[in-house]
Amino acid sequence: MEFPEEFKYTEEHEWVQVEGDLVIVGITDFAQDALGDVVFVELPEVGTEVTAGKAFGVVESVKAVSDVYAPVSGTVEEINEELPDAPEVINTSPYGDGWMIKIRISDPTELEELMDATEYQAHIAEEH
């Protein structure tokens, strides 16, 4: 299982890639593996305000459903329009084509609260 070094992670298994004041958000390889085949993704509309720690979307497999939480607060700048029609991409490419939303971050200090790859791996080892 892979956890790119350059990403940041949340306890709820989202990853964050920082690009200036935009952050790209998706769910980790660990999360997609635990869910199984993803069959449905629900994303917010562009322009929605999201709050760190609050759910912004939903991913579903055949027998499980999971909220996806915003790692940081801000405004949804872009969503992955391909996902609703091809949710399986989250399984095949969780860190690439399976990205979910881009958030224009309102408080960059929130990024400091997130884990790095090593801390995240320790977190999942401890949790499971």
Binding site: F40, E60, S61, V62, K63, A64, V65
Partner: peptide, 11 residues
């Protein structure tokens, strides 16, 4: 049975 994630035993 399908789209069961709407239902009580999962959601």
């Amino acid at each position: 049975l399908t789209l069961a994630t709407r239902e009580q035993h999962i959601r």
